[in-house]
Each structure stands twice: as structure tokens, then as C-alpha cells.
């Protein structure tokens, strides 16, 4: 456990020193500030626009961090040959991978926390009360980011940074479209397409399960069991991906 914690801490230090992290965080803050401008341009409910953009920014920037910082974590170690130094110590490959994953998870928490505080401050300027209900959307976003990070890790165990980035981005896009695709297939008569869409729906992660943004912003009732089951779904899927990543990484020949 200590070994995993040590790697996680080092990964965290490394990632927050990464320039990509700061550029993306800066981009997120600009996006949030931009929502204030848009809030003034609209005719009613500026807070709604700020909430939409705030939650959207947390998700967009978190996804980009998970992808662009996550894909390089294992591949970079192999490219720079630093992995030999680490793996020559009494440390298992799975501990190395999980440590790296935990370190980046903490980095993403930092991003989510910074953005959440900023979003709350902005909302408070318009309506003087802290919008705690936004957590119903923010926590699922964090779980989605964990899943995306796990996917980035999976690809980075056997592919180059560029390809891993492309693959992860594709999974993110597919993950948000499988539900629509399934509904589209069901409305048609093509059985092959229906089976294909069903396959995609159950194999790929359904990231729309974790999208509560619209319902939270519009104060629609969300049942706690629904959120909890969505989080459970996401956590189980993440665990499956991570085990798959460990499985591949354990068997990989490191030159």
C-alpha cells in the first residue's frame, strides 16, 4: 500500500508540474469567466447560463486533463526508460499502474475542486446562497472523469500517446452516443443494425448515465438511488478497465 501511495504522490507532483495541466486549468477559468459575459447577453436567468457553462467546463477540461495527462503517464516512463529504475525496485507492475492512476485521480480532484469553488463563487454573486445541489451533477462528472482516465491508461499500456489520445477521445464520444444509437436502431426495422447498436450499448461505457447536468440546473427531481446506481455502474466499469490494463501491462515485454 505504501508503494502505491509513494508512486501516487510522485505522479501527482509530476502532473501538477505539467504545463498542460495549468494551460487547461487556465482555459477552464476563462470559460467560466466567459459564462458571465453570456449571462449578461441573455434576457433572463443568467445563473442558468453560468451553471451550464460551469458544469460544462468542469467536464470538458477534466476530460482533456484525463486524456492528455493520462495517456502520457505510462508511455512517457517507457520512452524515457525511467520505468526500468522503478520496476527494478521491489514493486509489482500492478502497483506501479494503480499508483500512477491514483496520482492522476488526485490531480483531477484538484481540477474539479478549484472549478467547483469558482463556480460557487460566481453563482453566489447572482443568488446569495451556495448551490449545493450542483454536487448532484459534479460528483457524477468526477466519476466519469475517472472512467475516462482508466480508458486512457488502458490504451497507454499498449499504444503510443497519440493513438491512445485518439482512442480515448473516441470512447468518450461513443460513450455519449450509444444511448441515441440504440434508440435510433430500435425505431428502425434493420435487425443487424439493432444487434450492432445493442452490442455497442452494452460493451462501451454509457456515459450518459452520469450526465445529470440539465436535471440539476433545472431543479428537476433526481432520486438518490438513481445517482448511487450510476456511480456504482461507473465505479465497476472503471475497475474492469483498470484490471484489463493491469492484465495487459503485466504481460507486456518492456524493451
Amino acid at each position: 500500500m505504501n508503494k502505491i501511495a509513494a508512486i501516487a504522490l510522485n505522479t501527482f507532483r509530476e502532473s501538477i508540474r505539467d504545463r498542460i495541466f495549468y494551460s487547461l486549468l487556465f482555459f477552464a477559468v476563462v470559460l467560466l469567466a466567459f459564462s458571465m459575459v453570456l449571462g449578461n447577453l441573455t434576457l433572463a436567468e443568467p445563473v442558468k447560463i453560468i451553471k451550464d457553462f460551469g458544469l460544462g467546463s468542469i467536464s470538458i477540461v477534466g476530460t482533456l486533463i484525463a486524456i492528455f495527462v493520462g495517456i502520457g503517464m505510462v508511455y512517457k516512463e517507457m520512452e524515457k526508460k525511467t520505468i526500468y529504475v522503478i520496476l527494478s525496485k521491489p514493486i509489482a507492475r500492478w502497483q506501479f499502474l494503480i499508483g500512477k492512476y491514483c496520482g492522476l485521480s488526485i490531480t483531477i480532484i484538484i481540477e474539479v475542486v478549484v472549478m467547483t469553488v469558482l463556480l460557487f463563487v460566481l453563482c453566489y454573486q447572482y443568488v446569495p446562497q451556495i448551490p449545493f445541489t450542483l454536487f448532484y451533477a459534479i460528483v457524477p462528472i468526477y466519476f466519469e472523469l475517472q472512467l475516462i482516465l482508466a480508458v486512457a491508461f488502458l490504451f497507454s499500456t499498449f499504444s503510443t500517446s497519440f493513438l491512445s489520445g485518439m482512442f480515448t477521445l473516441s470512447i468518450f464520444i461513443i460513450g455519449h452516443l450509444t444511448k441515441d444509437l440504440k434508440m435510433l436502431a430500435q425505431s428502425g426495422d434493420d435487425i443487424v443494425f439493432q444487434k450492432f447498436a445493442n452490442g455497442l450499448y452494452y460493451v462501451f461505457p454509457n456515459l450518459e448515465n452520469l450526465n445529470f447536468k440539465a436535471r440539476v440546473v433545472h431543479n428537476l427531481g433526481i432520486s438518490l438511488p438513481e445517482i448511487l446506481f450510476s456511480l456504482l455502474y461507473s465505479a465497476l466499469y472503471t475497475a474492469v478497465i483498470l484490471i484489463l490494463a493491469i492484465f495487459i501491462f503485466e504481460r507486456r515485454d518492456i524493451p
Binding site: L38, T42, D52, S59, F172, I173, L207, A214
Partner: peptide
């Protein structure tokens, strides 16, 4: 719009 429908609607 993937999961960013509301942002696009605001725009």
C-alpha cells in the same frame, strides 16, 4: 453536442 447540449442551447 455530446453531453454539452445545454451549453449549445444557451449559445
Amino acid at each position: 453536442a455530446l453531453c454539452y447540449d445545454e451549453m449549445l442551447a444557451d449559445f
